[in-house]
């Protein structure tokens, strides 16, 4: 996993609540057996006027010029600003993969759906939770200010606005450390291999019916 320490990035505003994983990356793209290449199909049904299919050349497809990511001023954005319950729906990790592949490194919202939130941390995409009034204000500022960017400082758990104001957020300690160091969860867990083994043995003795087929 890539480390996340501090990022300064252009902000794109997606002014919708309950953005679901089917909207983030529609199902036809889940047929891929790879982890990459999802960026061109991020928000596919909102970005393009036609229906996307895996394997198609996306560069020649008609764009919906009203959709926020298609506006020139948001090209190259790495911070997505959105509303509450972002990422609701399925467990597809293709959703954070698509956001990352497109170029986003952080998503700011009032709240996130649980599984999506979890999946972000596994991939070095930082979900930042801010209170509703701060989100409202950020929407106003981003829309009023071309080129509006924010500094997302994970180390100090702060979002810094260009006017010098800083907004604090919290990430739980374990995730914070993993993300700052780019640690691989599996490697960390395997340090406890002995404990897992003895837990398992004890469980097998006490509840043998859970171990059908060995």
């Amino acid at each position: 996993m890539d480390k996340f320490v501090c990022l300064e990035g252009l902000v794109a505003p997606l002014d919708r609540a309950n953005v679901d994983t089917d909207a983030i990356i529609p199902k036809q793209f889940l047929k891929s057996i790879k982890r990459s290449g999802f960026g061109p199909n991020l928000f596919d049904e909102w970005r393009y006027l036609d229906v996307g299919e895996p394997g198609r050349d996306n560069s020649s497809r008609p764009l919906d010029s009203d959709f926020v990511l298609n506006q020139a001023r948001y090209r190259g954005a790495s911070v997505l600003l959105t509303r509450k319950n972002f990422g609701c729906g399925s467990s597809r990790e293709h959703a954070p993969w698509a956001l990352l592949d497109y170029g986003f490194r952080a998503v700011i919202a009032e709240s996130f759906a649980d599984i999506f939130f979890n999946n972000c941390f596994k991939n070095g995409l930082l979900p930042v939770i801010l209170p509703a009034d701060q989100i409202d204000e950020l929407f106003r500022l981003v829309e009023a200010t071309p080129g509006y960017s924010l500094v997302i400082d994970l180390e100090n758990q702060q979002v810094r606005r260009p006017d010098g104001q800083s907004l604090s957020f919290t990430v739980d300690a374990f995730r914070w450390e993993c993300l700052l160091n780019g640690w691989d969860d599996i490697g960390l867990t395997l340090r406890h291999a002995d404990s897992i083994r003895s837990f398992e043995e004890c469980r097998r003795r006490q509840k043998p019916w859970l171990f059908a087929g060995a």
Binding site: S91, E93, I115, D185, I186, L190, I196
Partner: peptide, 21 residues
């Protein structure tokens, strides 16, 4: 019983465990 992402599928395959709060 709950859903997990693909990284967690790999984590469970490799360790039979999940990190949870």
């Amino acid at each position: 019983a709950h859903g997990i992402g693909t990284s967690e599928v790999e984590h469970v395959l490799a360790t039979q465990c999940l990190l949870q709060k």
